[in-house]
Design a protein around this nucleic acid. Sequence first.
DNA 1: AATCTTATATTGGTTGGATCACTGAACCAA
DNA 2: TTGGTTCAGTGATCCAACCAATATAAGATT
Lengths: 235, 235
Amino acid sequence: MSLNTAFAQPIARSRLYEEIVAIIQKQILNGTLLPGTKLPPEREMAETFNVNRTTLREALRRLENLELLEIRHGDGVYAKNFLESGNLDLIKAAVSLDANNETLLNIMEARLSIIPEIAAMAAQRRTAAELAEIKLVIDREDMSISEKDLIIHHLIVRATHNLVYTIMLNFFNQLHRDVGQLYFNDERNIEQSRRFHSDIYEAIKDRKPEAARRIMQDVLLYAEQAVKANLAVKQ
Amino acid sequence: MSLNTAFAQPIARSRLYEEIVAIIQKQILNGTLLPGTKLPPEREMAETFNVNRTTLREALRRLENLELLEIRHGDGVYAKNFLESGNLDLIKAAVSLDANNETLLNIMEARLSIIPEIAAMAAQRRTAAELAEIKLVIDREDMSISEKDLIIHHLIVRATHNLVYTIMLNFFNQLHRDVGQLYFNDERNIEQSRRFHSDIYEAIKDRKPEAARRIMQDVLLYAEQAVKANLAVKQ
DNA sequence: AATCTTATATTGGTTGGATCACTGAACCAA
DNA sequence: TTGGTTCAGTGATCCAACCAATATAAGATT
């Protein structure tokens, strides 16, 4: 017998280099480490953090990929202005840093302006095969509503035939994974989702972009309210 | 003497690990390396690519950050489904891989649906200080029109007071840097940009979101046509 | 004095090799 | 069947060099 899945948490042990990433990332995001600042040499930083240079370098690489640092061979390591170059992955870090959940609200706002557009586009461009796939998932019974919801969103964005939207959705879905757990614990929300799935399916089937847009907008607004209510409780 | 800057390509000497990233990335994007596939051990791969294990690991790390690989301590390295987990940085690679510029068109489509919304939001939320900053940049004369354009877009998105939009803009601006060079070589486009700057400024000053949205939409459509014309010539 | 060239120190990039830590599978014991 | 033990495989980290690009300053040239 398996434990209550809501209880079993995936440990996710942090690697050493990730701890260093977190430290430097925090300093850049909260303005302690200003853009243009030259960091100490790798050898020196490695000693400071009391890790091997190889490990430190993995951390610096990560920060470079996030566009937080610029590493110049033969010169040194410089802090960049994350507002001008930062990567979407930064948002995850920003969410966990700001205490008043401002970033989370920002994410939901952006989502509300982008995903409904995706739904509309999907209603226009979906192929018969893509429509059938959605139907198939809705009718399956060996899957939790939460899993279904995730896949349906994926299938919808796939129907836009736009890779950028597809990848952007991945970003918003990370929110889904983090907050969704609570959302789908409430029976009312589950019923809401079921209705959403059949409604959006119909709109896409009938190639009604405006209907799809509105349906998507409504469900996002509904979910947003649920999340906000949850945040209010926590505080 | 300086070379023609439009001709001078940004050297960008590839680091060794980046070449390995490119190879594996390509295999995942074009479907050679299927999701779930277990890659050989690091020691073996390092030998195959004829690089040190440290170097290989930097490559694997990068691919993990791109959400293309999953690295499990004590187990192994597995390929992931980039359509379900991929990062926006992937798009850059996708652009250079697909021959028919489909991804570039995808980017422009997404941009057209997102940036105008940002302009509208900025018109509603901008503070007096943010407005003044924009004006200041427009009036400066020690700056190329291309540089101005970039900064003005930054200031506009900053006025939305939404970090997600700010970071998203960075993604689209990379396109700006790559294609903008050609765009701003044409005198007609420069004139177009000047008009755009003053028009969008007025709309934001007067707090007219719909006007700002339309102006932004028009300029993006105009630029899109210019890019498409350029692509047509190249092919 | 101003400019160019060259030598050198600094710093990131790469290497080879060793050891630690986690995972999975096979095996054993209750 | 369940739980514990062992062990081989694999990633994580460490250590100590050397390679390669850059910045800087000293020297040569004009």
